[in-house]
Design a protein around this nucleic acid. Structure first.
Lengths: 211, 211, 211, 211
DNA sequence: CATGAATGAGGATTCATTCAT
DNA sequence: TATGAATGAATCCTCATTCAT
């Protein structure tokens, strides 16, 4: 008999509006009232859906991270050989970060303003997972001979993850958008000519495709 | 005159203490009172040396940026050929970021909490300068044949700057320190085997040094 | 007509649940939502039966006071002589307060939280009535010689009423229940040996009953 | 060099004003802003001296309890025999409660509004101490023959403590002040003729003074 | 009748900044 | 010059109450 509302859907809609407001004015400078107004609801209603400001960002981050995890999985399965897997992963990560740049910006913003150790720990876990995943792929590539055996997989993985983070931070600090495709192809070039064991003359012979 | 020197020195000492406090608890969670206490002075005295909270960070950032600019200059002059210039620049930037990680962390923190457009603009300018400088070097390298002509200097420069930022951000998010030397050499390898026009056979002959 | 009976019955059931919730967490800390939940109904439905929070307590208090008034009447009629009337009244009042301790606790609670002058006035009236009633009985006892003429009936009545209140407050402040029977007999002893004119030798002969 | 303020004295002054405001409008209805205004200071200044509303009441209660404890001690030492000790204690307690009625009212008020278990526990402890003290005196009186051996010291003690509480509560509920001296002497009469073992004829022989 | 989603008035609390000493 | 006591603007969050369904 009472008004029936799809709470999940409405929470999503509110979070969407919140992200816009938070991104525009910054996490600290955006008041709960601003978010409510941006979502077109009353201040009190906001608290029907989210316990507090961090909860809103957490909600957004979940959506962000779900697509990220799914995309990473897809990228992993898309290619049979380590090198292509790596390209696929990095390309996807870069594109995803730029596609979800508002979410990224807000999450980093929040991380600075609140000192939520739980969130930080979760994020650190995600990063560690990424590093481990990439290091693993690099190791495999070194073992099957497709990647140069002369570098430390862990350090190189850290380098890639840092690069991913850096792209996000650059986007956050500067107002002008980054060219995802350009960055991705530049990175690709760096990788293909850098970490592959097979060199130009080899490639010319085999045809260039690593698989 | 000696008074002024004293003032400057005391401001430096206060800023030093401030950085420690700000880094430990975050920009937003650190009160002016905390900073004053960390510096061993009264709350009111703080305002004798700094107009407000942002001013403290600005003071710190100035010191940080001065050493950065000087180091970049030195790096530029240290090597005659573009490729070595690039290596020197990136190595220095990376090492500098990790050495001044507290300052970096605090500046990023503040950027999120305040929405100081002036600061942001200055920082953006610094980044643009860095990008332009690197792109210029890359172009020179492409022209003199020492670098692979197949990439866009601007995009590749953006990639390097992002990487620099990412290292800082990683350091900020995670509590464990990064291995500057390791990262630097990994990057170096990536560069040497990736963006240099000279290939495996050349290296084997010459021994790897581009100049 | 049956509807109205139903409404009354449901209001009683809700009020019963409300008392439990209010007693458990305190008037101020218990939200209307809590009461609705405790009663197993919707928040809106609560307002179909009670205008607001105080109304719920008022409803409970009415039930409480009705049994109190009825019991006091019964006690008054149960004994022919003033002294026995007094014993009967005080015993009943004490037992009633402890039996309805939840209601007492909630009413006092509410009195502190709301500043409802109307309620306070009503309660003051009840107390004044009690005092007058008791003072009257005491006077009668003094006149017919069964009570010691040496005390002021009004002051002694005030003492008894205070005692009644005190038992309630003690019960409210402490979590452990009070021994109603024990208190009552202690009080009885105090009265019989204290305010009765008849002394030890008389008691030894007659056996202690004043009538 | 800075303004020097006797923090303790100022806290006392603020608490004094707070008690007045809290007593007048009730704990729940009195806003921190009201208290600040009553004390003639800014809202923020209030927080320089007290962490929150309960802390203010706690401060007041401490002052109240200190004089209470001291007075109880004095009363204990004032009389050599148990019966007189008891009279002295009860008289003092009654008079003290009425003298500090504002503090009492506010403390009870707060107890209802906040559910501070710590405070409640402390108060319960005080009451238990009072009961034990009185029960002990009663026992001594029973042993040395000056008090009627026919009652339970513990229950009678509980009765007295309840009476004490009741006087406070009556004062709280009603606006008109109670007659402390009258109540005290009524109680005294109740006690002297009630719980003393020696009766009228005995008293006439010995001279009436229990010691 | 019953419901619970929506609301905003209201109050506690924080903290950068001022300024009298 | 150094200080810390004083301040109030600013913001979070709660919850009684309304009302559309």
């Amino acid at each position: 008999m009472p008004k029936i509302v799809d709470k999940k859907a409405k929470a999503d809609r509110i979070a969407e509006a919140a992200i816009r407001a938070l991104r525009k004015n910054g996490y600290a400078k955006t008041r709960m009232a601003d978010i409510a107004e941006a979502a077109g609801i009353g201040k009190g209603t906001l608290y029907e859906y989210f316990a507090d400001k961090p909860a809103i960002v957490r909600h957004c981050f979940t959506a962000y991270f779900e697509t990220f995890a799914r995309g990473m999985n897809d990228a992993m399965e898309s290619a049979p050989c380590p090198a292509d897997k790596l390209f696929a992963l990095l390309s996807f990560a870069l594109a995803h970060a730029l596609e979800w740049e508002d979410h990224c910006a807000v999450v980093i913003d929040q991380m600075s303003c609140e000192r939520a150790e739980e969130e930080r720990a979760f994020l650190t876990g995600v990063y560690d997972g990424m590093k481990a995943l990439i290091a693993d792929i690099l190791s495999q590539g070194q073992e099957d001979g497709s990647l140069d055996p002369g570098f430390s997989p862990e350090t190189m993985a850290a380098l890639f993850v840092s690069l991913y983070d850096g792209v996000i931070l650059q986007r956050l600090l500067q107002e002008k958008p980054l060219d995802a495709a350009g960055l991705s192809s530049a990175l690709s070039r760096l990788l293909r000519q850098g970490i592959l064991a097979e060199k130009q003359d080899a490639k010319q012979k085999k045809g260039g495709a690593p698989c």
